[in-house]
Deep mutational scan, measured.
Amino acid sequence: MASQGTKRSYEQMETDGERQNATEIRASVGKMIDGIGRFYIQMCTELKLSDYEGRLIQNSLTIERMVLSAFDERRNKYLEEHPSAGKDPKKTGGPIYKRVDRKWMRELVLYDKEEIRRIWRQANNGDDATAGLTHMMIWHSNLNDTTYQRTRALVRTGMDPRMCSLMQGSTLPRRSGAAGAAVKGVGTMVMELIRMIKRGINDRNFWRGENGRKTRSAYERMCNILKGKFQTAAQRAMMDQVRESRNPGNAEIEDLIFLARSALILRGSVAHKSCLPACVYGPAVASGYDFEKEGYSLVGIDPFKLLQNSQVYSLIRPNENPAHKSQLVWMACNSAAFEDLRVLSFIRGTKVSPRGKLSTRGVQIASNENMDAMESSTLELRSRYWAIRTRSGGNTNQQRASAGQISVQPAFSVQRNLPFDKPTIMAAFTGNTEGRTSDMRAEIIRMMEGAKPEEMSFQGRGVFELSDERAANPIVPSFDMSNEGSYFFGDNAEEYDN
């Protein structure tokens, strides 16, 4: 993207840094990872977990959730003011799984939030270390993106479920800051804005008074975040219109849905970061690795190297396929839920299948599930090659597409044709070009129609051997075009429920 120079890199967003050079960025990201790792080690000690239990991804998720809940100030305040039966607002906890007599047992633990905050700050040299908290939120978000298709949420806001490739980060909490905003897809931002506008339509006082002023500035800020994701002048001009509207209503909703559809071809720039579970960072720190000293990046080879040398386990339900569970977590670790499966298959070195073909449910185990038949197995999170994460949407291309997802959002900077089903997408653009945004709409449609099938995206960008740390010898991959490109292809993934 041309304006790259004016933006802070995501590592800076990730670490609240002012302008830093590459070495400083690597050190501050490393410091953040160190903090998460030290916190995780301490929690495993508190909970008396064995090494194996500490490497269980379900335990990692519970521990991450506990610290996120302990620092969720708004919710904590709300819980104190609106006490609900049987919930102690000062405590947080969740299921911890232990191996007892050759069987997995679930144990519900409860801790004072104050105590968890103390352990977290102690692991982070006394700081609140917001960057580390956001990092864990993005890992949870990436896992949700890989596990669930947001059909219901899309339909509720009037969008087409086939636009799911635009929904990265749709389950990120509001408090995820600049680093969170960077990884949100165009569809996620559109959905947040539509929800806001709908509230304004239904509630006369939404934009009024002292609160209304705050609401208005939040609305304009979200519009600017979305505008910054678009790469064409016409899309940005249309966002200006939406932002400046005196009284946002149905016309703005129409414009936003139009823009979301246009992003299936004229893709937005959305950041991709490899955020790993805390149970990967903990053992690495415990083994003596100093992330701050060595430096770390979320968008280069580092996460690949770390996963190459990590042992992570997962509980497996009786009829689940461990290899499929591994694929789910591998995609989440690489922030690749909406990437082209052919690119992923090449990088991973084994075939990556669409969601609907995987015999696996989510990673988390519900409290009512029976533990008797639970097994555990090693997650295979290694890769054959590594590639640089991208934040450009890439230019655009036609490809055989599917009944489910009709476009992709690249996660890796790797040369390819970008699949999208042009006739299906263009069919949504018939007729409606009147109104105050008509010239911009016409211009956007013209650009979409001009998108050429034979153009290559990320020209000359390749993948790298894991021994090639400096990215000196790019390998331009070859793809098996007979395979499906979309992950949520004609899909039956479970729906995400809060």
Results as ranks from 00 to 15, higher is better:
M1V: 07
A2Q: 00
S3G: 00
S3P: 00
Q4C: 09
T6M: 04
K7T: 00
R8N: 00
S9F: 11
E11P: 01
E14K: 15
R19T: 07
Q20Y: 01
A22K: 15
T23E: 01
E24G: 00
I25W: 02
G30H: 00
K31W: 04
K31V: 05
K31Q: 07
D34P: 00
I36N: 00
G37M: 10
R38W: 13
Q42N: 03
M43D: 09
C44K: 13
E46D: 10
L47Y: 13
L47Q: 01
L47E: 07
L47A: 00
L47P: 14
L49A: 14
L49G: 04
L49R: 11
L49W: 09
S50Q: 15
G54L: 03
L56W: 02
L56Y: 06
I57F: 03
I57Y: 03
I57S: 05
Q58S: 10
Q58I: 05
N59Q: 03
S60P: 02
L61A: 07
L61S: 13
T62C: 09
I63M: 14
E64N: 11
R65G: 07
R65S: 12
M66T: 09
M66H: 07
S69E: 07
E73S: 10
R74G: 03
Y78V: 11
Y78Q: 02
L79T: 04
E80Q: 11
S84I: 07
G86M: 01
D88T: 03
P89T: 05
K90H: 13
K90T: 15
G93I: 04
P95G: 15
V100N: 11
D101Y: 00
M105G: 03
M105V: 09
R106V: 09
R106E: 13
E107F: 05
L108A: 07
E115A: 10
R118S: 06
R121F: 08
R121Y: 10
Q122F: 14
A123V: 12
N125I: 10
N125H: 07
G126L: 15
G126P: 01
G126D: 03
G132T: 03
L133S: 02
L133E: 04
T134I: 03
M136S: 07
M137Q: 08
M137R: 02
W139N: 08
N142D: 05
L143Y: 05
T146K: 07
T146S: 15
T147F: 09
Q149S: 08
R152I: 01
L154Q: 01
V155F: 06
D160V: 10
P161I: 02
S165A: 15
G169M: 03
G169I: 11
S170E: 06
L172G: 02
L172A: 15
P173T: 10
R175Y: 05
G180V: 03
A181Y: 10
A182C: 05
K184F: 07
G187A: 14
M191N: 07
E192S: 05
E192N: 13
L193C: 09
I194R: 11
I194A: 07
I194W: 09
I194D: 14
M196E: 05
K198R: 04
I201W: 04
N202F: 12
N205K: 12
F206R: 05
F206K: 11
W207K: 01
W207Y: 13
W207R: 09
G209C: 06
E210I: 00
E210T: 10
N211V: 11
S217T: 15
A218Y: 04
A218G: 05
R221K: 13
M222F: 13
N224L: 12
L226H: 11
K227N: 12
G228Y: 04
F230V: 05
Q231H: 15
A233E: 00
A234S: 14
Q235D: 04
A237Q: 13
A237W: 00
M238A: 15
D240E: 11
D240L: 10
D240R: 04
Q241T: 04
V242L: 04
E244T: 03
S245N: 03
R246Y: 14
R246T: 10
R246S: 10
N247R: 02
D255R: 04
L256K: 03
L259E: 12
A263D: 03
A263W: 05
A263Y: 01
R267N: 07
V270W: 02
V270S: 12
V270H: 12
S274A: 04
C275F: 07
C275D: 01
V280A: 07
V280G: 01
G282S: 11
A284M: 01
V285Y: 11
A286N: 10
S287Q: 10
S287H: 08
G288L: 06
G288V: 04
G288S: 09
D290V: 07
Y296Q: 11
Y296S: 12
S297R: 02
S297E: 01
G300D: 06
I301H: 08
I301G: 09
D302T: 03
D302G: 00
L306E: 02
Q308R: 00
N309M: 03
Q311K: 13
Y313I: 10
Y313W: 13
Y313C: 05
I316Q: 02
R317S: 09
P318K: 08
P318W: 08
E320G: 12
A323F: 14
A323V: 13
S326H: 11
A332Q: 08
N334G: 10
S335A: 14
A336V: 01
E339C: 03
D340W: 03
D340T: 13
D340H: 14
L341E: 05
L341V: 14
R342F: 06
V343S: 13
S345T: 13
I347N: 08
R348N: 07
R355V: 09
R355A: 09
G356P: 07
K357W: 07
L358D: 05
T360H: 09
T360S: 12
R361D: 03
V363C: 15
V363E: 04
V363M: 08
V363Y: 01
Q364M: 12
A366L: 07
S367E: 02
E369I: 10
N370Y: 06
N370S: 06
M371D: 03
M371Q: 07
D372V: 03
A373D: 02
M374C: 15
M374T: 10
S376Q: 10
S376P: 14
T378Y: 11
T378R: 15
L379W: 02
E380K: 09
E380W: 14
E380Q: 15
L381V: 03
R382P: 03
S383K: 05
S383M: 11
S383G: 12
R384L: 04
Y385T: 06
Y385R: 11
Y385S: 05
Y385A: 04
I388T: 09
I388L: 08
T390I: 00
S392L: 05
G393Y: 03
G393N: 05
G393E: 09
G393K: 08
G394W: 12
N395I: 02
N397M: 03
R400M: 06
A401D: 01
S402T: 15
A403G: 08
A403V: 06
V408D: 03
Q409N: 06
P410S: 12
A411Y: 00
F412L: 15
F412R: 04
V414P: 00
V414E: 01
Q415T: 03
Q415P: 00
P419Q: 08
D421Y: 10
K422R: 15
K422E: 04
M426P: 01
A427H: 03
T430D: 00
T430N: 15
T430G: 15
G431R: 06
T433Q: 08
T433L: 15
G435C: 05
G435W: 14
R436T: 02
D439Q: 11
D439H: 11
A442Q: 01
I444E: 03
M447G: 10
M447C: 10
M448W: 04
A451M: 06
K452H: 08
P453Y: 01
P453N: 15
P453L: 10
M456H: 04
F458E: 02
F458C: 01
F458D: 02
Q459M: 09
R461L: 05
G462A: 11
L466W: 15
D468H: 03
D468Y: 00
R470P: 00
A471S: 00
N473P: 00
P474N: 01
P474R: 15
P477I: 13
S478R: 09
F479S: 14
N483A: 01
N483I: 12
E484K: 14
E484D: 07
S486E: 01
Y487E: 02
F488D: 03
F489G: 00
D491Q: 03
N492K: 14
A493L: 09
E495Q: 06
D497Y: 15
